[in-house]
Design a protein around this nucleic acid. Structure first.
Length: 500
RNA sequence: UCCUCGGUAGCUCAGUGGCAGAGCAAUCGGCUGUUAACCGAUCGGUCGUUGGUUCGAAUCCAACCCGGGGAGCCA
């Protein structure tokens, strides 16, 4: 007999093993209990049959409730009826604790309730799978950069200046001096790149913006590589091969987790294997204003209206059926009506939005930054991540190098994930000339004395260099196919959410 | 800050001016292979808060509180 984990059950077929874990769900008949046991590595159905265990053990099994903790011993049996293909035929069972009534039942719950119970919600299958994938992504990022000869550096979290851009930062008291929580480690990474050549940060980032969307957190994790002697093209190549490595690693290592998440991997396969689309900002603007885009949106509107009609018709029909339906069918109908209502809400929002999107795209002015809808429209037209480069300098940060072929452009780069997941990478080639950088700092009304150390990097052996920032949570959301970044981090910090 | 949708049992929801409802969970009973098991019973309510209209308010009106989605900003 040995202690085993659910993940390794296949290696112990027909052997007696002991699992330690928690009850995920339990179903009972008179002489047989089905225990779904989770042990942190996976889920396993355990069979406790009255004629195979002592009376005491059988009764103990019947007393178990959701999330009760236990040790269970039995024979590993291959059975296709069970989740994972293996089940445990119990011979013995030790209850560690009978859990109190567990709030997260096997039925549906609302977001607010689940967020209030985030500390427990993390035990649920989908949340468990998302955290497993997050871990794979984190480790893959380290593997990628380490094999490419980068060293990891840690940038400070307290910073003395609120400068750089327009974003609102969290202010704290630093021994009677104002300090801000970092919004980026980039400037520090540039300094380290001049010492080590290729570096990357992997740390928390804070933004005090009052953004209430599925893409925003106030505290999130960002990976920022910074490389000496890299131009914009090399920067884009690096971003592409990094993302492909991450996606391929998840596809290789998290097949079962992606299945739990019901993730369609078609686009992930494409992202891992096909070259990313690269277009310039100016071409993207042309595309937004094109006839094709207008037609695409018109078609989308027609499709949504058609779908709305169909599901409303379905709702009418099943509501008619409801009166005379049997109990189980009634439950089925109620469930379907709930789904239809949610979809109707979504379609109605789309129908409100599409005309706005259409107008915003058609009347887009060269020089503006893309809004969320513009990004969505652009990514809708491709299957792989989309790299947009050379943005108008005016909408980008002061440290970005201008395009030598067009002063109005910054050598910037954004990567938009497919399927509407939006911007996951923002980066650029950095301005490496002391004079130009000083002028930019003045233009942006930034306090030069705070940037003296940064300007030193351009005085002592300045070189062309580039880098970017990858948003971890948005990447996890995209790869897992999650609707909201709050499910990509164990304890999300967002507007109105500080606990648990 | 603005736009928009919502708040009814522990949970998910129905109820649009006239007795407060269903499913799940919990408790008890039944059922030998269940997959969100099933069947029967029991338990369960400050209808977000305050004020107003009305013979009568979960339902209508106003203000406020809380939450979802979006805009701006961005990873």
């Amino acid at each position: 007999m040995s202690i085993s984990s659910v993940k390794n059950l296949a290696d112990h077929q027909d052997k007696i093993v002991t699992l330690k874990g928690w009850i995920y769900n339990i179903r009972s008949s008179k002489a047989i209990h089905f225990l779904e046991v989770r042990d942190g590595s996976g889920l396993c159905q355990c069979i406790v049959a009255a004629d195979e265990v002592s009376e005491g053990v059988f009764e103990a099994a019947g007393s178990l409730k959701q999330e009760s903790s236990l040790e269970i011993t039995g024979k590993v049996v291959k059975d296709d009826r069970s989740i994972g293909g293996y089940e445990l035929h119990a011979t013995d069972l030790k209850v560690i604790q009978i859990a109190e009534n567990y709030p997260i039942t096997p039925k549906d719950h609302g977001v607010e309730f689940l967020m209030e119970n985030r500390h427990l919600w993390l035990r649920s299958q989908r949340q468990w799978a998302a955290m497993q994938v997050r871990n794979t992504i984190q480790f893959a990022i380290h593997q990628f950069f380490q094999k490419e000869g980068f060293i990891q550096m840690d940038a400070p979290i307290f910073t003395g200046n609120a400068a750089e851009g327009t974003t609102t930062l969290f202010e704290t008291d630093y021994f009677d001096e104002k300090a801000y929580l970092t919004q980026s480690g980039q400037l520090y990474a540039e300094a380290m790149a001049m010492a080590h050549g290729k570096v990357y940060t992997f740390g928390p980032t804070f933004r005090a913006e009052k953004s209430k969307t599925r893409r925003h957190l106030t505290e999130f994790w960002m990976i920022e590589p910074e490389m000496a002697f890299y131009d914009l093209e090399m920067n884009m190549d690096l971003a592409e091969s990094m993302l492909q490595f991450i996606v391929q690693t998840v596809l290789d290592e998290n097949e079962s987790e992606l299945e739990i998440l019901e993730r369609d991997t078609t686009y992930l396969e494409k992202a891992a294997n096909e070259k990313f689309i690269r277009i310039s900002y100016s071409d993207a603007v042309e595309q937004l204003k094109s006839k094709e885009t207008a037609e695409l949106l018109d078609q989308m509107e027609v499709d949504r209206k058609e779908e709305l009609k169909e599901i409303q018709k379905e709702e009418k029909e099943i509501k008619k059926e409801h009166g005379s339906a049997k109990k189980w069918r009634k439950a089925q109908i109620d469930q379907r009506i709930k789904e239809i209502n949610a979809r109707v809400d979504q379609i109605e929002e789309d129908l409100r939005n599409i005309p706005v999107w259409k107008e915003s795209a058609a009347n887009f002015k060269w020089g503006n930054d893309f809004g969320g809808s513009d990004e969505t429209i652009l990514t809708m037209q491709y299957d792989t991540p989309l790299m947009i480069h050379r943005y108008p300098a005016e909408v980008k940060a002061f440290y970005m190098k201008r395009d030598p072929e067009n002063e109005k452009l910054a050598l910037a780069l954004d990567v938009l994930a497919p399927e509407g997941y939006g911007e996951i990478i923002g980066g650029s080639e950095r301005e490496d000339s002391l004079d130009v950088l000083q002028a930019r700092i003045e233009e942006h009304d930034l306090p030069e004395d705070l940037f003296n150390w940064y300007l030193d990097l351009r005085k002592f052996g300045t070189v062309p260099h580039s880098g970017y920032g990858l948003g971890l949570e948005r990447t996890v959301a995209w790869i897992c196919g999650l609707q909201h970044v709050r499910e990509t981090i164990p304890f999300p910090r967002m507007l109105g959410r500080l606990r648990p």
